[in-house]
Amino acid sequence: MRHINKKNKKDINVANKFTGEGWVYSATVKKHFFYPKNLLLKDPKPGDFDAEGMVGSPACGDMMRMWLKIDPKTKRIKKLKWRTFGCASAIASTSMFSVMATEKGGMTIDKALKIRPQDILKRLGGLPERKIHCSVLADQAFRKTVENYFHGV
């Protein structure tokens, strides 16, 4: 992954910063990794979604595609689906992100854009420090998909 900074590269600490546990991933992370939520299993039909976006490249080792269904009146997120060529951290954080954006009747786009990687990490019970950058992928894919929703790009 080329997009990570030098500091991350040097960091080899795999202990969970939040729980202090030795195992690489928290129970919540494992749950979302093994049973991801809102994964799009079948290719969508035209009209199923209002927008889609894709970020990353397989060469970098992570790639994500996201689909959105938006309530035209309330601008709330009705559906947020995704697929990824990504590691456990990317899968778990995207799964959690999709839950956060769609729970309780769905967030508005504006509010969902304010979800920070730290917020996802908190809900996941943390990630190993060297894998935190993987949680950024969901955020990037979401921004790209929102762009597609508003501007069709």
């Binding site: 990570i4 990794f33 093994f34 590691c87 993987c134």
Partner: peptide, 28 residues
């Protein structure tokens, strides 16, 4: 398929293997 994901899915099914994926290496 991404190597780290595969290693963890296999691990959950009782099989221990390794991968050359960046996601599991110390220096990424």
């Amino acid at each position: 398929i991404e190597g780290e994901s595969a290693v963890l899915y296999l691990d959950a099914r009782g099989i221990a293997v390794s991968t050359g994926s960046a996601c599991t290496s110390r220096n990424l």
